[in-house]
Design a protein around this nucleic acid. Structure first.
Lengths: 136, 136
DNA sequence: TCAAATAATTGCATTTTGCAAGTACTTTTT
DNA sequence: AAAAAGTACTTGCAAAATGCAATTATTTGA
């Protein structure tokens, strides 16, 4: 995917993220991949937000085009594909944790472990490293 | 705006953020308010991404409904309104800086000051405080 | 060979977006 | 006092994206 003025509305860093993640579904796939150990099309379909099959296929295609995920054939089953983060994708960890922290602070109904906020405040870098270690 | 299962697809913290910011425009308004000193409808319209008037009106309405911004009448002109962050809105600063950092790392065309990444790495809390001080 | 598993694509109705034009109220100018 | 300009929208309509259900294609396992 070429990055130029044809594909982006501006060269603003906030806008750059929106060009890839500015919709209601893409970040849920990132979440599943990052925190829930999901890796396949079927895995993503099972999430409680109920993404539909055409949207899922489209978003996975876009994530691959933007070099956030890499698609590979599963070793055990050639009709199954595994989606994994690229380094660029793994580097979204700090954003995702910050988003989680914001919801933890401002939405009492959000399902966040009770210790999350203090753990995050006291050991942000360790938490980032732990999530990363889990992905590698 | 009531927060319950009618208005949210799930109680996931990532999804909670998407319910408010999961589109291509809302975060640009947040950016303008947070980093560019913009405060009025006309200000937001001028941004280079060229939001259209109906979308802008809709997004400002939603941001207000979600208690991210507060709308007040301007002192100097009663046909002019000022949009300002609530505390919940100001608390988006860490997310916005993390998003900026990600684009700085992964998009060479993003307009980010050359010193941003080292400043951010060395003094994250100070940078957050500086942006916040600028808003108050 | 046939059923199951996996990953999609297709068609169509609904919703959202984008664009241009128009409206309403306030302030400034004459 | 009337006209023009400033500010913040709303409206109507075409185009694009989304959501849903059904169907297709390929590989695997019995």
């Amino acid at each position: 995917m070429i990055r130029n003025s044809d594909t982006c509305r501006s060269n603003c860093p906030i806008n750059f993220v929106l060009e890839t993640f500015g919709d209601r579904w893409t970040l849920l796939i990132v979440r599943d991949l990052m925190f829930k150990g999901k890796q396949t099309y079927g895995d993503f379909l099972e999430s409680e937000e109920q993404i539909s099959t055409n949207i899922l296929a489209d978003r996975l295609r876009r994530l691959e085009a933007h070099d956030i995920v890499q698609k590979t054939v599963a070793k055990d089953n050639r009709s199954k594909f595994l989606y994994r983060f690229t380094d660029k994708g793994k580097d979204l960890i700090p954003i995702m944790l910050e988003v989680t922290a914001w919801s933890a602070r401002h939405d009492s109904l959000s399902n966040v472990p009770t210790t999350f906020l203090s753990d995050y405040k006291n050991g942000r870098e360790q938490m980032i490293a732990a999530v990363r270690a889990n992905l590698d």
